[in-house]
Design a protein around this nucleic acid. Structure first.
Lengths: 127, 127
DNA sequence: CCGAATCCTGCAAGATACTG
DNA sequence: CAGTATCTTGCAGGATTCGG
């Protein structure tokens, strides 16, 4: 996937055509799929994500959420209070991604073992 | 997305749970979505891909195709002849990804402009 | 024609510390 | 609590060359 945030190389180079790439730009980031998935069943706070995925660093969490926000799929609601409170949720636009995310989840569940085992022992070839 | 090819950090670390991640492992590579998409309507040769996407380097094309092959979604058919000929196609397993890829394509087509414009709008304020 | 093998660079991403 | 600010590093990915 391209990294849009840097510039518009698709403008300098006949626009990259492929729509699949557009979608992967939005959901294909290192943690974006996961974040989006967890947002499907409701808003989440910053530290909720950290609890769900302890491996993601604060920095990365911030960056990925900011990109999702910039793409208009995630809304960031700041409550002016002490202690601070910020809630992330899917926008209406973000909701249009739900079917894809859920579909990916189903596929992952179904073929998880297969993918992992094929990776491990280099595939028995078919066809 | 994680990079499986290195090792199994999901074994050392409570298994990473999220199925969405599994799927993104397979289709989320930099060019994988595109490659898979173009394989939907039939087998392709190495240089066909290069023509379709002049920007992808030989090296990356090879690497990405190899990973797809190792994940069992792409089949690599070598014809022993001169000049050499290699054809790539989706395996039966790879076909199970078709709906997702096509769905992503539809989404990308539909919202391409929106995503791009949203991106463009907030790039100028950059701190 | 379809790669494999090297070499090299830049950015993505980790670690750590600090703050409103 | 929800982030920034730095510093550092690893590896993805580019360029180039060689080979069957």
């Amino acid at each position: 996937m391209r990294n849009r945030k840097i510039g518009f190389d698709y403008s300098s180079d006949h626009f990259e055509g492929c729509p699949v790439e557009t979608t992967l730009d939005v959901i294909g980031g290192k943690w974006k799929g996961i974040l989006l998935y967890h947002l499907i069943d409701g808003k989440k706070r910053f530290n909720e994500f950290r609890r769900l995925y302890p491996k993601i660093t604060q920095r990365m969490l911030t960056l990925q959420l900011r990109e999702l926000e910039r793409d208009g799929v995630v809304h960031r609601e700041v409550y002016q209070q002490v202690p601070p409170k910020v809630e992330y949720s899917l926008t209406e636009f973000g909701r249009t991604l739900e079917p894809i995310i859920l579909h990916m989840k189903d596929w992952g569940e179904k073929y998880k073992d297969r993918v992992h085992s094929e990776t491990a022992l280099n595939t028995e070839d078919e066809i």
